[in-house]
Nucleic acid binder design. Structure first.
Length: 257
DNA sequence: AACCCGTTCAACCGCCTGTGA
DNA sequence: TTCACAGGCGGTTGAACGGGT
């Protein structure tokens, strides 16, 4: 016998939400903020379990949610991120702040999966050129490195960053003029990809100094930070500043190449 | 008009994780 | 250290809908 679902509590309603229920929930959040979901049913009188309330808010009622068709850019990002991260929908959603994880998951399952399959069986014209037509997660160092290199070189953002990197001071190798603000870094888009790196490269808990550039051994990596607009990644130096990485990657010995 | 079938997406389920007592 | 609980996450379901016959 497993644990009974929370919504099995007597009197709890299930199924589609009515406009009246939505209003009650929005009123609660306006007054109390999106927290303490446990108290929502008792405070509002809603006959919904706390999980249902939280889900309704985060997936539907929360401000700033974009609904409707996904743009080509969004589609491309989802495909690339899914190839890199697998079905980590919440992480992928953090790169598309106007979309919910549920939306992205649904879009993947109903549109993109089929699209990829068609492309795999057919010409492949529908896919970004760097997608290798596999539904499985990128599973080897070689594959993921190639995938990201090609993608980075083909995306408009990478052009911007390449320009920036070409102007950077080679002595300090501090990334400048990236248009990547601190606010963005610290916000929910600043997702740590170190887990993906760990699984791909066998890195276990990147530590300060563990990664270094062969041409600048005194430059060490203190972390990895992705670009919210794409799958370029920055390395952070030991002072927490970015030093760029767009066109270099790691080998199995944790050296950049 | 009635039925069938495929598609979409909101919502639920069950497990996992983080946190506080 | 252990336990309980709330919140988070990914997988799955099923009602609603639209197009075809």
């Amino acid at each position: 016998m497993g644990r009974p679902p929370c919504c099995d509590k007597i009197g709890m309603k299930k199924g589609p939400w009515t406009p009246e229920e939505d209003i009650m929930l929005v009123s609660y959040v306006q007054e109390n903020g999106p927290a303490n979901w446990k108290s929502v049913p008792t405070t509002t009188g809603l006959r919904r379990c706390s999980k249902s309330c939280r889900l309704r808010w985060t997936n539907y009622l929360r401000p700033g949610i974009k609904r409707g068709n996904f743009t080509d850019q969004e589609e491309k990002m989802i495909i690339q991120l899914q190839a890199l991260l697998g079905n980590k929908w919440a992480t992928i959603a953090s790169y598309l702040p106007e979309r919910t994880d549920n939306d992205i998951k649904n879009y993947w399952n109903t549109h993109l999966k089929k699209k990829l399959k068609r492309a795999q069986n057919g010409s492949g014209d529908e896919l970004p050129s760097n997608h290798h037509g596999s539904f499985s997660y990128a599973s080897s160092t070689e594959n993921i490195a190639r995938l990201l290199k090609v993608w980075a070189n083909s995306s408009p953002e990478s052009d911007e960053h390449s320009k920036c990197s070409s102007t950077q001071d080679s002595n300090t190798t501090t990334f400048k003029d990236s248009g990547f603000t601190e606010e963005t870094n610290e916000g929910k888009m600043g997702i740590d990809l170190s887990e993906a790196f760990e699984s791909l490269f066998g890195f276990e808990n990147l530590k300060p100094g563990e990664l270094s550039r062969p041409d600048s051994p005194n430059l060490v990596c203190d972390g990895i930070k992705p670009d919210p607009t794409g799958i370029q990644n920055w390395l952070l130096d030991d002072q927490g500043k970015d030093f760029f990485t767009t066109n270099f990657w790691f080998d199995e010995n944790k050296n950049l190449f």
